[in-house]
Each structure stands twice: as structure tokens, then as C-alpha cells.
Nucleic acid binder design. Structure first.
Length: 601
RNA sequence: GCCCUCGUAGCUCAGUUGGAUAGAGCGAUCGCCUCCUAAGCGGUAGGUCACAGGUUCAAUUCCUGUCGAGGGCACCA
């Protein structure tokens, strides 16, 4: 519908040029907007004002010429020039009504398009370290990423969803060691658990599996394990009055302590047994993450292993390419990447003085690989705490001669839970966090998905648990779902009353839809494809949630003002066609959000 | 100290990629079921778009500065 009007404007512009009435170097893409106020018609364009600037003509004169050159169309009843030079289009009621059969015929395809033209887009999201279950912060990234991916797919992009598995590095060693220490406790060893270890219950569970399957085979005496290990800092169990962890104790250091324990674990267990515990921890947690995301309706095409980058030589290849380009130098025994040459604030280490490559080195290789896989566009969705990381990744891509503009990093702010108006505290290391699974069980998938994407991603999200659970109009999820269920209910009522409902898209008698509420609902309905398009291109799912509330509101208002199941069969049929179209838009929109559209509530 | 994001109604937030008289929801308040689910609908009140400059036909939107909030500044991942 919008495109039809755009075409009219383009036609008028080319007509003016060919008649010599317009002297512009190049024609702008006509900017057409929905009007805020129906007094200004249905659509408005500002081309006359934009062109006036380029051609030094008076905007209203130009607008006048443009209006005269517009081809006639049955869609438009009236065109007027307003304000400084807006051209307002008033659409025929029939133009709106004609959308009903189109919507019904399109069915679940309504709102989908091909503007992405099959371009390949990779969306990488969540990618949480497999050191513990997903918590509610990851949940927001999961919901946001999944909806952005689905939106892009809906408008014709070829989308590849990926999870980057950080299955290497020190954090995983800490997890492995934490599991082993818990296992030793299960064997009957008495030890002081490191303050920097992972303390969650899931660590006990993995340790219990190890103990159940292998008995004491991995056991070593506590004295042997802790021999020569530097002092720990204060325990994480010890808190000050405000509940914050105490600072490092004098003479103790939690980092050197845990590193000492990791070394002890590797030494005492030997390669094979250490590897076994490591894999047990990794796989148990990864399975849990997969299961959780799958239960949340989030599926991936690929789980990409960080370790595979090292093993395949990709990391070394990336470093060699940087070296060949003259972007590396040695300092204090480490190998540095001169990222400042590409706008980063300081240079970064890629190989440590102990010979190990850094996480950053893996990430360079990973992003190089992403671009080499031929994606037209790569989208990374990160937690906002990683924002400082963007310049160095882009710097690396530039240094490698890749097009850094193909990479977009979208940052998602944290979600803060509120229960009874009080903030729910969270700390990963201390094992005090609400998991995504707990949240899903508490409020349900539908409310979780909807609430997570309700706000712009760079906005902090206050997640009100009580509101998400409330079954009332205060709760936006129920409000939208209820509109859908109400349409279904009307149809059930019709059946009970023996009123036949014509299931075909049918085009008859729509002219009977003359009420203001019907026009308002129709106007909203025709906006749906435009909303999906901008929500997808701008990666802003909240536009869709916002829209669905408005659409639901238009429906509820109509429902209250008019009876659908009237005696007049012709009018009844027209009204049912309209609310069926509304149901289709509600269902499709909820579907894109990963929220169910219930038949009754 | 430097960097990023944010600052819009009492609260939580939109604002269609610079447009016309800045909008929802909640809360407050006044109404609406003999009627397809009241899990709903309507009315009223509520604003110096943090502040000061700048860019232009036009700024809540873009730029600069100030103030305030949150986050980030590792040879961790």
C-alpha cells in the first residue's frame, strides 16, 4: 500500500523532469510517512521541501507542480499541500478495505517480504561461557537475538544463527578445578573451597556424577592438592554488613591461589584424567544450555567451538597474517597488536609472555573466519559490558584488510529483576543468580519473550516479575494474546449460534464496513508489513511489541463499540472478515516474537 | 581521568530513521456489562522533551559543551 503511493510520487517526479519543470541532478528516493494525525491524511511526503533546497525553488510551488503531475489512482481520493510544503495523501476507504482479502489470502505470509533479497546474514548471540547455567541476563540476549534473526528471515534475508562456545581458556580451567574440588569433598576430603571457584549447586551435581561413575579414582589427599599453593584471599562466603564480598586478605590473593590449584589438578590428574573432568563439566553445562535455549524456542544453525580455532591452526594463521602486514611487535616477552593504528585506545596482547595466545587472538581468528565464510553481513549481539571490545575487533579486521563495516555489534543492556518492587540481587561467581530456566518456569516463555524485547536493547530493562505473571490488562502479553483469543471466541460463538462463517478470503460486501472503529482497525492492519520491515532493518523488536499493543487496542475498542454477530448476514460476514484479518496480523506478529497465540484464555 | 549508553508525564517507556498540536501503559480520578470473555472500553487531570549553545525551511531527534544515572577501561574469558 505504501509502495503504491511511493510509485505515484516517483512517476510524478520523472514526469516533471522530462517536461523540464524540474532541474535536479538526481531524484531523491521519495520519503513517505504515515501521518500522526488523520487530519493530515494517511500518508505525507516531504520531497517538495527536500527538492526545494536542492533547486532553490519555493517548496509550496514545487509541491503544487508535483501534485499536478501525479498520475490518477483509485487509491487516492484527495491530495493537499499543507504547512511549509508537505504533500498529504488521503486514501479511499476502499483502498483499505481491499487489503482484507489480500491479508486473508496471504495468511501466515502476511507481513513477510523479500527486501533482504536472500543476502546472507549471520547473527551470533548469547555465546555465554559454558561455566554455568544461563541466567536472566543471557535470557535477554537470547530473546533479542532470536527475534532479530527471525525478523531478518521474515523480510527475506538468509539467516545463520550461531553460538560461539568459549570452550578454552582459564575460566574453563577454573570450572574444571571447581568440579574436581567438590568431587574431593564428596570423597570425604576436608578442604577450603577457593573464593574464586564456581560455587553454584550445578558444580556439586557434576562432581556427584563423577563420583558416582568413578568412585575414588580421581581422589588425591587434600594436603597433596594444596601443597605449595599460594594463600587464598578472604572467602567469598564472608561478607560485610551490606552483603558485599570482602577484599583480598593481607598476604592472600585469589588469582594466584586458583592458578595454583589448576596447576595442581593438571599435575596430579595427568592429561587424560584432567581432560575427562574438563569435558564432563563442559558437556554437562553445554547440554543444559542447549536444552534451556531450545525450551525457550531459540535454535541455532551452528555451535562454533573456540577450541577448534586453535586446533585447526586458524589462530596462528590470523597472527601470521597480522605479522605479515607489519601490525605486530614484541614487548616484555609478549606479542602485541598495534590496534591504536586503527583507532583503538591502546595496543593489545595476542600472545602472552608464557607463549599462550589470548582470548582476543581467538576472537580475531573467529571474526576473520566469519567474513571468510562469505556472509554479507555479520551481527554480533553482546552484553553491554563488552562494549570496550568493539574497537579492537574492528581494528583487527581492518588490519587484516577485511571490510570491518560488514560487522555490526549490537549491545544489550542488563535486565534487572524486580519482585514486590524490590531488586533481585545477582552475582554469578557466588552462585547467587536467577537462571533463565527459573524465570521461564516462573513467568512462562510467552511473558519472558515478550518482556525481554519490549524495550530498546540499549535501554536498561526493569523486568517486573509480578507484572509478567499477572493475568490482567496491565500485562501487555495478555492484552495482545487476549485480542487473539477474543477473535477465536467470536468464531466459536458464531458456530454455536449456527451462523455460517465463510472461510474463503472472499471480497464481497466489504463496503459495509463504514464505522470509524473499522477504519481505524484497518489503518493499523495495513501498517503491519511496514512495522516488520523497520523492526527488522533497525534490529528493533520493540517496535513490533509496541505495534501489537496498538493493534490489540484497536481491536478491543472495536469489540466494545460494535457487535460482530449481527442478524444482518452480509454485514456480519464483512465484520468477521475484518477481525479474521486482525487475528492473522496478531498471530503472525506474536509468532515473530516467539510468543504463542492462544485460541482461548 | 578516558570511552560507551541513557536522561521525555508521579512511575515504566514509545516517538515511524530531522517534520505539522510530543504519545501509550501503569498510578490518580469519573464513567461503561439484559449484549460475541469486564483478562475489555471510554472521559478527565498530568510536559520548560536534563541544561546551554550551534547546524536549517524545520531539532525530542544531528553537532559541541555542562550536569546527572548506569556500564566499561587485563599478558581474564
Amino acid at each position: 500500500m505504501k509502495q503504491d503511493i511511493k510509485d505515484l510520487i516517483s512517476a510524478a517526479l520523472t514526469a516533471l523532469v522530462s517536461r523540464g519543470q524540474l532541474d535536479a541532478p538526481e531524484l531523491p528516493e521519495p520519503m513517505l510517512e504515515r501521518t500522526r494525525d488523520t487530519a493530515h491524511g494517511d500518508f505525507a511526503t516531504n520531497v517538495a521541501m527536500v527538492l526545494a533546497k536542492l533547486t532553490r525553488a519555493k517548496p509550496r510551488d514545487l509541491a503544487q507542480r508535483l501534485v499536478e503531475a501525479l498520475p490518477s489512482s483509485s487509491l487516492v481520493t484527495r491530495v493537499e499541500i499543507a504547512g511549509p510544503g508537505f504533500i498529504n495523501f488521503f486514501l479511499a476507504d476502499d483502498a483499505y478495505r481491499a487489503e482484507i482479502p489480500r491479508i486473508l489470502a496471504a495468511g501466515h505470509e502476511f507481513g513477510r517480504s523479500r527486501i533482504g533479497a536472500g543476502q546472507r546474514v549471520q547473527v551470533e548471540f548469547v555465546s555465554a561461557n559454558p561455566t554455568g547455567p544461563l541466567h536472566v541476563g543471557h535470557g535477554r540476549g537470547a530473546a533479542y537475538g532470536a527475534v532479530v534473526a527471525d525478523l531478518l528471515a521474515a523480510v527475506g534475508f538468509n539467516v545463520h544463527r550461531e553460538y560461539y562456545v568459549n570452550d578454552a581458556g582459564r575460566q574453563m580451567d577454573i570450572l574444571c578445578t571447581s568440579v574436581w574440588l567438590r568431587y574431593l569433598e564428596l570423597c570425604g576430603e576436608d578442604l577450603r573451597f577457593p573464593s574464586n571457584g564456581y560455587r553454584g549447586d550445578y558444580v556439586w551435581d557434576i562432581a556427584a556424577t563423577l563420583h558416582r561413575e568413578h568412585g575414588d579414582a580421581y581422589r588425591h589427599p587434600t594436603e597433596e592438592v594444596f601443597a605449595g599453593v599460594p594463600e587464598d584471599a578472604a572467602s567469598a562466603d564472608e561478607r560485610d554488613e551490606e552483603g558485599n564480598p570482602l577484599p583480598d586478605a593481607p598476604g592472600g590473593d585469589k588469582e594466584t591461589h586458583i592458578d595454583g590449584l589448576i596447576a595442581a589438578a593438571k599435575h596430579l590428574l595427568g592429561d587424560n584424567r584432567y581432560r575427562y573432568v574438563f569435558e564432563l563439566g563442559l558437556n554437562t553445562i553445554l547440554d543444559d544450555i542447549r536444552d534451556d535455549l531450545s525450551g525457550f524456542g531459540v535454535e541455532y544453525q551452528e555451535w562454533y567451538s573456540e577450541r577448534s580455532l586453535t586446533e585447526s591452526g586458524a589462530v596462528n594463521k590470523a597472527i601470521e597474517r597480522l605479522r605479515a602486514g607489519g601490525h605486530l611487535y614484541e614487548l616484555n616477552g609478549a606479542l602485541w597488536f598495534r590496534s591504536t593504528a586503527f583507532g583503538d585506545e591502546k595496543d593489545r596482547v595476542v600472545v602472552r609472555d608464557n607463549g599462550q595466545t589470548t582470548y582476543f587472538a581467538s576472537d580475531i581468528a573467529y571474526h576473520m573466519d566469519k567474513l571468510e565464510r562469505g556472509f554479507d553481513r555479520v551481527i554480533d549481539i553482546w552484553g553491554a559490558d563488552h562494549h570496550g571490545y568493539i574497537p579492537r575487533v574492528k581494528a583487527a579486521l581492518q588490519a587484516l584488510g577485511d571490510d570491518a563495516d560488514r560487522l555490526d555489534v549490537l549491545l544489550v543492556q542488563f535486565a534487572i529483576l524486580y519482585r514486590d518492587g524490590v531488586k533481585v540481587p545477582m552475582s554469578t561467581r557466588a552462585g547467587e543468580f536467577v537462571t533463565l530456566r527459573e524465570l521461564r518456569h516462573e513467568v512462562g516463555n510467552d511473558a519472558a519473550r515478550f518482556f525481554y524485547v519490549m524495550r530498546r536493547c540499549e535501554q536498561h530493562l526493569d523486568f517486573d516479575l509480578d507484572l509478567a505473571k499477572s493475568e490482567s490488562s496491565d500485562n501487555p502479553v495478555y492484552y495482545v494474546q487476549y485480542a487473539h483469543a477474543r477473535v477465536c471466541s467470536v468464531l466459536r460463538q458464531a458456530a454455536e449460534k449456527g451462523m455460517a462463517v465463510d472461510p474463503s478470503p472472499g471480497v464481497t460486501n466489504l463496503e459495509r464496513l463504514v464505522e470509524d472503529h473499522e477504519q481505524a482497525l484497518l489503518r493499523s492492519l495495513t501498517r503491519y508489513p511496514e512495522v516488520v520491515e523497520t523492526a527488522a532493518l533497525k534490529a528493533e523488536p520493540h517496535q513490533l511489541t509496541q505495534y501489537l499493543r496498538e493493534l490489540a487496542n484497536d481491536f478491543h475498542t472495536y469489540y466494545n463499540a460494535h457487535q460482530f454477530l449481527v442478524e444482518d448476514a452480509v454485514l456480519r460476514d464483512a465484520r468477521i472478515k475484518l477481525i479474521l484479518a486482525a487475528r492473522q496480523a496478531l498471530r503472525n506478529g506474536l509468532g515473530l516474537l516467539g510468543v504463542s497465540a492462544p485460541e482461548n484464555m
